[in-house]
């Protein structure tokens, strides 16, 4: 494995918060929300629908939280001077950037898998073997949108603001994007707001797959557009903000 990638993964692995917020919390939510809302459904079909929908939402919530958490941390490395230090070693800058993208993507996977396992074995969600694989695959691929967003935020904000943004951004994207309760339960203007969040389209993609169809074109195009914009802005910020610090 690339030494820098191994190094970065080891660092994140030491962070216990990551495990709690991006794996354990979504898994617990999956169980509770399904029990509460699904339990109110009169029939088994209604319960099954809720169970699948909640599971997809929580997979999306966990993955986007993990992707954001792993990447916004680049702000800490900038503040500590570590990015500057790396810059004066022979490690190419493109590799430093690529490794952060890879770390964000890799960390999104455990949340997806654990929540899917909870959905299947605790809540009894029934999908075909192929559908499970496609569901995890599609949501994993889509998590790149939040890797790009996290890098953009992490490169743009100062250390303290970035630290706050990790929690706030994940919560806002989940709430407005309809991951904690269905968008249909929102008042009309809020439903429109959801269309402007990448998290909404991300979960829509997953719901299409869970329903046994291929993702519709609109969610895919919308999420791709968000990713492209976030990535382009992140690259621009990375080029613009100097890494030097001068006091003498």
């Amino acid at each position: 494995m690339n030494p820098l990638l191994a190094f970065q993964l080891r660092r994140v692995g030491r962070n216990k918060q990551y495990l709690f917020f991006t794996v354990l919390l979504p898994a617990l939510f999956t169980i509770f929300i399904t029990k509460i809302i699904g339990g109110q459904m009169g029939d088994a079909a209604g319960y099954d629908e809720v169970a699948a929908s909640v599971m997809v939402s929580m997979m999306a919530y966990g993955a986007l939280g993990a992707a954001l958490g792993a990447t916004i941390r680049i702000s800490f490395d900038r503040a500590s001077g570590w990015l500057r230090q790396l810059r004066i070693t022979p490690v190419p800058q493109t590799q430093v950037f690529a490794v952060d993208v890879a770390v964000g993507a890799i960390l999104a996977l455990p949340s997806l898998v654990v929540v899917a396992l909870v959905g299947r074995f605790v809540n009894g969600v029934q999908l075909g073997t192929g559908t499970w694989a496609v569901l995890v695959g599609v949501l994993w691929a889509g998590s790149i949108a939040f890797v790009a967003l996290g890098l953009l935020i992490g490169l743009s904000l100062e250390e303290k603001a970035a630290g706050g943004a990790i929690g706030i951004l994940g919560t806002m994207l989940a709430a407005l994007g309809g991951l904690w309760w269905p968008v249909e339960m929102f008042p009309e203007p809020m439903q429109v707001l959801a269309w402007f969040t990448p998290s909404y389209w991300y979960a829509e993609m997953g719901r299409d797959v869970a329903a046994g169809t291929a993702p519709a074109l609109l969610p895919v195009v919308a999420l791709t557009a968000f990713t492209a914009v976030f990535a382009a802005l992140a690259v621009t910020v990375a080029r613009r903000r100097p890494l030097h610090a001068v006091s003498g």
Binding site: P3, F7, R10, R11, W82, A245
Partner: peptide, 22 residues
């Protein structure tokens, strides 16, 4: 550097190894 830094959540030996190998 005057404002060079070390990464958090890492051991000295790991950082040194990473830089040496580069």
């Amino acid at each position: 550097l005057q404002h060079g830094g070390l990464p958090s959540e890492a051991r000295v030996g790991e950082v040194l190894d990473l830089v040496r190998r580069s």
